[in-house]
Amino acid sequence: MKEALLFDKLKDSDVVLCRMCAHRCRIPDGERGKCAVRENRGGTLYCLLYGRLCASHIDPIEKKPLFHFLPGSYSLSIASAGCNFTCLHCQNASISQYPQQFSEIEGDEVSPAHVVQGAIRGGCKSISYTYTEPTIYMEYALDCAIMAREKGIENVFVSNGYMTAESAGLIIPYLDANNIDLKGDDEFYKTVCGGRVKPVKDTIILMKGRGVWVEVTTLIIPGLNDSDAILREIAGFIRSVDYSIPWHVTSFRPTYKILDRSATPADTLRRAYRIGIEAGLKYVYEGNVPGSHGENTYCPSCKELLIERYGFTIRRNIIKEGKCPECAGTIDGVWQ
Results as ranks from 00 to 15, higher is better:
residue 323 K to T: 08
residue 77 S to K: 02
residue 241 V to F: 01
residue 78 I to A: 07
residue 38 R to M: 10
residue 26 R to T: 06
residue 21 C to W: 01
residue 205 I to T: 06
residue 47 C to M: 07
residue 211 G to Q: 06
residue 114 H to M: 11
residue 200 V to C: 09
residue 204 I to P: 13
residue 110 V to G: 08
residue 306 L to G: 04
residue 7 F to S: 05
residue 260 D to W: 04
residue 38 R to E: 04
residue 264 T to G: 04
residue 263 A to R: 14
residue 308 E to R: 11
residue 215 E to W: 00
residue 139 E to P: 05
residue 315 R to K: 15
residue 57 H to A: 13
residue 297 T to H: 14
residue 14 D to I: 01
residue 137 Y to A: 14
residue 104 E to G: 04
residue 261 R to T: 11
residue 252 F to C: 09
residue 18 C to F: 01
residue 178 N to A: 15
residue 31 E to N: 11
residue 70 L to V: 07
residue 291 G to C: 07
residue 100 Q to F: 06
residue 301 S to Y: 10
residue 49 L to E: 01
residue 230 I to K: 04
residue 315 R to V: 04
residue 186 D to E: 14
residue 91 Q to T: 12
residue 34 K to Y: 08
residue 205 I to L: 13
residue 35 C to W: 00
residue 329 G to W: 12
residue 199 P to V: 03
residue 184 G to E: 09
residue 238 I to C: 02
residue 326 E to F: 10
residue 115 V to P: 04
residue 260 D to E: 09
residue 209 G to I: 05
residue 160 N to P: 01
residue 56 S to Q: 13
residue 56 S to T: 12
residue 32 R to H: 04
residue 293 H to V: 14
residue 267 D to G: 05
residue 179 N to A: 12
residue 312 F to W: 11
residue 322 G to E: 11
residue 220 I to M: 11
residue 280 G to V: 11
residue 56 S to V: 13
residue 175 L to M: 08
residue 260 D to F: 06
residue 139 E to A: 11
residue 278 E to L: 10
residue 194 G to A: 09
residue 50 Y to Q: 01
residue 154 E to L: 15
residue 108 D to M: 13
residue 161 G to K: 10
residue 63 K to G: 00
residue 330 T to I: 14
residue 313 T to E: 11
residue 294 G to A: 11
residue 304 E to P: 13
residue 12 D to A: 03
residue 99 P to A: 10
residue 102 F to P: 00
residue 132 T to K: 04
residue 282 K to E: 15
residue 336 Q to D: 14
residue 85 F to G: 00
residue 48 L to H: 08
residue 256 Y to Q: 03
residue 152 G to K: 07
residue 325 P to A: 09
residue 172 I to C: 05
residue 255 T to F: 01
residue 244 S to N: 15
residue 70 L to H: 11
residue 336 Q to E: 14
residue 168 A to G: 13
residue 257 K to N: 12
residue 271 R to E: 08
residue 8 D to R: 15
residue 281 L to M: 12
residue 128 S to G: 10
residue 248 H to E: 10
residue 234 I to E: 02
residue 171 I to S: 07
residue 186 D to R: 09
residue 212 V to H: 02
residue 166 E to M: 12
residue 315 R to C: 01
residue 288 N to R: 12
residue 88 L to P: 00
residue 198 K to F: 10
residue 1 M to V: 06
residue 36 A to F: 11
residue 151 K to L: 01
residue 169 G to L: 10
residue 46 Y to N: 03
residue 77 S to F: 02
residue 35 C to G: 12
residue 267 D to R: 03
residue 253 R to N: 14
residue 185 D to K: 05
